Amino acid sequence: GATAVSEWTEYKTADGKTYYYNNRTEESTWEKPQELK
């Protein structure tokens, strides 16, 4: 299949934890999204 550009962006909180934000759905998660595995 075609490689889609991930909708997920990786961010870090002030205390250094990583989370992921989906630009399309406006969803955020602590877990690494399936698309990034």
Rank of each mutant, 00 (worst) to 15 (best):
E35G: 10
Y20T: 00
A4R: 10
A4Y: 04
D15Q: 04
K32R: 12
A4Q: 13
K32D: 05
K32A: 08
Y21F: 09
Y19F: 11
D15I: 02
Q34I: 12
Y21A: 01
D15H: 04
T29R: 15
K32Q: 09
T13L: 04
E31R: 04
Y20V: 00
A2R: 13
E10S: 04
E7P: 06
P33L: 02
T18F: 12
T13E: 03
E35M: 06
Y11E: 07
Y11K: 14
N22Y: 01
G16K: 00
V5D: 12
E27M: 05
Y20F: 06
G1N: 12
W8F: 02
G1D: 12
D15N: 07
T13Y: 03
T3E: 13
V5Y: 12
T25L: 04
K12Q: 11
T29M: 09
G16F: 00
G1V: 14
K17V: 08
K17I: 07
V5G: 11
K37A: 12
P33S: 01
E10L: 04
Q34P: 15
Y11L: 15
T29A: 07
E31S: 05
N23F: 10
T9H: 11
P33I: 02
S6F: 07
Y19K: 05
A4M: 12
W30Q: 08
E31K: 05
E31D: 11
Y19W: 12
T29I: 09
T18D: 04
K37S: 14
Y19N: 03
A2Y: 10
T18I: 14
T3V: 11
A2P: 13
S28L: 15
G16M: 01
W30V: 07
Y21I: 05
E35V: 06
Y21W: 07
L36N: 07
E27V: 08
R24T: 11
A2G: 12
E10W: 03
N23D: 10
Q34A: 15
E10R: 03
K37V: 15
S6K: 08
S6D: 10
W30G: 05
T13F: 03
Y19P: 03
T25H: 01
E27L: 05
W8E: 00
W30T: 10
T3L: 12
E31Y: 07
L36V: 09
S28P: 02
E31P: 03
W30P: 07
S6W: 08
W8P: 00
E31H: 06
N23Y: 11
E27A: 04
R24W: 13
S6Q: 11
W8R: 01
K17E: 10
E7D: 12
E7C: 07
Y19C: 15
Y11H: 15
T9P: 01
K37P: 09
V5A: 14
E27W: 01
K12N: 06
V5P: 12
N23R: 08
K12D: 03
Y11G: 05
G16A: 01
T29G: 03
R24I: 15
G16T: 00
N23M: 10
K12Y: 09
S28R: 15
Y19E: 04
E7K: 04
N22K: 00
V5I: 11
Y21E: 04
A4I: 13
P33M: 02
T3S: 14
E7F: 08
T29P: 01
K32V: 12
Y11W: 06
W8M: 00
Y21N: 02
L36D: 09
L36S: 06
Y21S: 01
N22T: 00
S28W: 15
A14T: 13
K12E: 07
S6L: 10
T13M: 05
A2V: 11
E27F: 03
K32P: 09
K17A: 06
W30R: 06
T13C: 13
S6A: 09
S28A: 10
E27G: 03
G16D: 05
Y11P: 00
T18G: 02
D15Y: 05
K17N: 08
K37W: 12
Y20P: 03
G16H: 02
K12R: 14
N22S: 01
N22F: 00
R24F: 15
E31T: 07
K12G: 02
S28D: 03
K17G: 05
T13V: 02
P33Q: 03
G16P: 00
K12W: 06
G16S: 01
T13I: 01
G16Q: 02
D15E: 09
T29W: 05
W8L: 01
W8G: 01
N23I: 14
N23S: 15
T9I: 14
E10P: 04
K17Y: 09
N22Q: 02
D15T: 08
A14N: 08
Q34W: 10
Y20R: 00
G1I: 14
A2L: 14
N23P: 08
N22I: 00
T29H: 05
T25Y: 02
P33G: 02
K12T: 13
E7H: 08
K17T: 09
E7R: 03
S6N: 12
K12A: 06
P33W: 02
T18C: 13
E31V: 10
